[in-house]
């Protein structure tokens, strides 16, 4: 049996960027790399929809694109180069700003302060519409709310692990979700007024 495909987790940028726990489940070199986020999302793959606000080719010899994808809570940093040619090509073609969907793998490098900086290596990046962005915000709110509930109850192994490692402030994340929800409302108002 081939290994089951890794599910794409829904995580907001603020939470994703606060992650610093990377691990593998076995010593095997092909064993997948995971990032555990503060609310207990075990990510080997993420699905993000947001606004591509910046992009630049920072490569020397070959193209190496860095982009910033913002959501209501912060921004993801994405990198695409010669090892993900399709994503690199797509990123170079997409205009800034625009709504994009990114399916990708968490990646990391050591920041100046010695802590890991978590980024996303896109497998796929495509332009999407505003409705898709709103659906994702709702999706990510619900997924995060579920994880927070599991965290409080200690009902899943990932939740227990996350609580042990991060001991996150649940109120802070609840406020983050409330703010994210407000971003849905303001968009709806704009659309109604336009009509």
């Amino acid at each position: 049996m081939p290994q089951a495909r890794e599910v794409a987790r829904r995580v907001f940028a603020k939470e994703f960027n606060a992650s610093n726990m990377l691990f593998k489940e076995s010593e095997d070199q092909y064993s997948p790399q995971y990032v555990l986020t503060p609310t207990g999302a075990k990510c080997n793959r993420v699905f993000i929809v947001g606004t591509l606000t910046e992009k630049s080719d920072i490569g020397n010899d070959s193209e190496y694109w860095r982009g910033r994808v913002t959501d209501p809570t912060g921004a993801f940093t994405i990198y695409a180069g010669q090892y993900t040619p399709e994503a690199a090509q797509a990123l170079s073609d997409i205009e800034v700003p625009s709504f994009v969907a990114v399916i990708g793998k968490p990646s990391s490098y050591k920041g100046q302060d010695g802590n890991p900086v978590i980024t996303v290596r896109p497998e796929i990046i495509v332009p999407v519409d505003g409705d898709t962005r709103d659906l994702w915000v709702k999706d990510a709110i619900e997924a995060t709310a579920e994880r927070l509930q599991a965290l409080k109850a200690g009902s899943t192994p990932d939740a227990v692990k996350a609580k042990e490692h991060y001991n996150p402030n649940v109120d802070e994340y609840r406020t983050m979700l409330q703010n994210a929800a407000k971003s849905l409302k303001s968009m709806e108002v704009v659309v109604t007024n336009a009509r």
Binding site: I141, A145, Q149, Q178, L184, E188
Partner: peptide, 18 residues
């Protein structure tokens, strides 16, 4: 295509239930 029928109150209710 999934319809964008998001009810803000319902979303907020889920957040407040945490």
């Amino acid at each position: 295509r999934t319809a964008k029928d998001i009810t803000l109150d319902e979303v907020l209710k889920k957040v407040e239930a945490i």
